[in-house]
Computed example of a mutant assay.
Amino acid sequence: GAHVWVREKEQLVPATVNSCGDGTLVLTTDYGEQVLYLQQAEVTRERVHAMHQTSVDGVEDMSALAELHEAAIMHNLYQRYQKDSIYTNIGSILAAVNPYKQIPGLYDPERVDLYSKHQLGELPPHIFAVANECYRCIWKRHDSQCVLIGESGAGKTESTKLLLQFLSVMSQKSAGTPPSERSTRVEQAIVQSPIMEAFGNAKTVYNNNSSRFGKFIQLHFSESGNIQGGCVIDC
């Protein structure tokens, strides 16, 4: 059946048309599969309207959505989440949805190598794509970069570790160090993280190991792209 938006309890909900006859429109919502029966008099443009194809198919970059409202954004994230695609671009912003599980191959060395060879937007959205763009801007443009990682429970701590992991590999590649010797200052920053977490983390309704303090990590790069030093400050 056709995909539509239906306004239910003052919210737009994605739904699929099951049948339309005898003056009754039968819909099944995408969330919870609730069946709705609307009489002909209830079917107005404000109550039911067609879903654009970009919302039906889903997009990697939500700036490409033809319908820019909260329901369309949430539906797009939901569709991608169901496919284990936890990363979605919003222009230059990366939206990450916590999968609360391990996704095989998502952060393996082969994935690091793949994203290091492509510019932002050439591959599906990923935290490594953001890290690579930062590294390219530092190394080629000599511009300082800042990455802000936000919402509570979304995986800030893990995302930070993944950014550092990528930068660590890129730093060692620039220095020509063999893979067997890739023990760096960045990895030292990652190793100290559990110590800080032991004193500053707590169980919340979002997760069992939520950071209760802010963390500012600063890295210094040489002209060749190698990490020369850095610092970690709690705040």
Rank of each mutant, 00 (worst) to 15 (best):
E46W: 14
T24C: 09
V26N: 06
G23C: 00
G23F: 01
R47P: 04
A50P: 02
Y37G: 04
G21I: 00
G23E: 06
H69F: 10
T28P: 06
S63V: 15
G32Q: 06
D61N: 09
A41P: 05
D22R: 12
V48T: 01
M62D: 05
G21R: 03
V43T: 05
M62W: 10
Y37I: 02
H69Q: 08
E67M: 08
G58S: 06
T24R: 09
T54P: 01
E46Q: 13
V48N: 04
Q34N: 15
D22L: 11
H49I: 08
G21K: 03
N18H: 13
R45H: 15
C20W: 11
E42A: 00
G58Y: 01
G21C: 09
T54G: 00
D57A: 08
A50R: 01
H52M: 10
V59Q: 08
G58C: 00
L27Q: 06
C20Y: 11
H52V: 09
L36R: 07
L68W: 15
D57G: 06
T54D: 02
Q34T: 15
L38Y: 01
E67Y: 09
V59K: 01
D57P: 02
G58K: 05
N18A: 13
L68M: 13
G32I: 06
L27G: 03
H69S: 07
N18M: 12
Q39K: 14
G21W: 05
L36M: 06
A64K: 10
E67Q: 09
